[in-house]
């Protein structure tokens, strides 16, 4: 998972410098060490943000905010804990905050969805390829629908079902307990099922 290619000129830092040492140096004001962390971890954070914010420009904006928060909090990182968990906690918190704000702004009515819109779900289940335009339309609609989920529910679902995290890993990232994550996942799946079933089925 770790990216080793560092493109910008941080010649005084080895590519294999540990995240903990880089974070400590960044906290002490070493800009090169911070750049190193950004280069190393930005693809990971960006891909996670893309799970929640479909447009790359939105995902990049969120990623920038994540690293801004990381910069401010670098001094609070304790090297005993895995850096990735700490970073992903900042990232998921940032995504959650953004999702909350967006959820307040956007209220989509499922009944407004066109009658044949459920077709893309059935096609996705069968793995049938769709025309590019239709596929993009389906992704936009699906992303809009997922915005209706509670941000915490969505984060747990994405981490577990898309990123493949175990409940223990999700607990470590979100700062919760394993039991709480399992309960949350159960509720989130129920909400997701309800949402999916509210989409009009394909006319047969």
């Amino acid at each position: 998972m770790r990216a080793t290619a560092i493109s910008e000129g941080n010649s005084d830092l080895a590519d294999d410098a540990s995240d903990a040492s880089l974070a400590a140096r960044a906290a002490a004001g070493d800009a090169a060490a911070f750049d190193h962390l950004v280069e190393r971890w930005s693809p990971r954070v960006f891909r996670l943000a893309l799970r929640f914010f479909r447009r790359p420009e939105d995902a990049e904006e969120v990623s920038q905010e994540v690293f801004l928060r990381l910069y401010r909090a670098a001094g609070s990182y304790r090297s005993g804990a895995p850096f990735e968990n700490w970073l992903l906690r900042i990232a998921t918190n940032t995504c959650r905050d953004r999702l909350r704000r967006r959820r307040v702004r956007k209220e989509m009515v499922v009944a407004d969805i066109a009658g044949d819109a459920g077709a893309w779900l059935d096609q996705a289940l069968r793995g049938a390829s769709q025309e590019a335009g239709r596929a993009e339309e389906a992704r936009v609609l699906a992303a809009d629908l997922l915005d209706r989920l509670a941000p915490k529910d969505r984060i747990v679902l994405v981490l577990m079902d898309i990123e493949g995290f175990s409940s223990e890993e999700v607990a470590a990232v979100t700062g919760s307990t394993r039991a709480a994550v399992k309960v949350r996942a159960l509720r989130a799946r129920r909400a997701l099922r309800r949402l999916a079933m509210s989409i009009p089925r394909r006319e047969r």
Binding site: S42, P43, R47, E60, L125, A143, L146, L157, R193
Partner: peptide, 30 residues
């Protein structure tokens, strides 16, 4: 219902592209 939910989650969560990266110059913008 579970299958439709899973399909919805995958479609709405950035599809299946795992190679996305931020635009060049991201560190400078940060």
């Amino acid at each position: 219902a579970e299958a439709r939910g899973a399909a919805l989650l995958r479609l709405g969560s950035g599809g299946f592209d795992g190679a996305a990266r931020p635009r060049p110059g991201f560190a400078a913008r940060v």
